[in-house]
């Protein structure tokens, strides 16, 4: 929502190198540089991260709760995608 505060940005923080970026919140800023600096001041005051992503909220595409059932349903009956579906003889190790 754009108002006198600038558009909304979503903030993702990476705790340590090699780990995934995790969503931590959002903020208003007028441009990407300001968004990044505000994200640093707002979400990493206590060593919460080593790297940040900021993304305009309006650029995020998300699934909708009403379609949740039909959208994720196709994977529910494919139990053969899980390792526990397969029977391994007793005594077999490292598997």
């Amino acid at each position: 929502m754009a108002d006198s505060q600038g558009p909304l940005w979503e903030v993702f923080v990476q705790k340590k190198a090699g780990q995934p970026f995790v969503h931590c919140g959002n903020l208003h800023a007028f441009d990407k540089e300001m968004a990044l600096q505000n994200a640093r001041d707002l979400y990493t005051r206590r060593g919460e991260g080593m790297a940040l992503w900021v993304v305009l909220s309006s650029n995020i595409v998300s699934s909708s709760p009403e379609d949740m059932g039909s959208f994720f349903e196709p994977s529910n009956d494919k139990i053969y995608r899980h390792p526990t579906f397969y029977q391994i003889p007793d005594g077999i190790k490292h598997m």
């Binding site: 929502m1 108002d3 006198s4 505060q5 919140g25 959002n26 208003h28 707002l42 005051r45």
Partner: peptide
Amino acid sequence: LAKVQDEGGHGLYLYTAAESLGISRD
């Protein structure tokens, strides 16, 4: 100073939580 800065940050977290319900910061 650090404490007062935190309070400002808390306000910002909460304002965007309220905005997610369809009201603007203004």
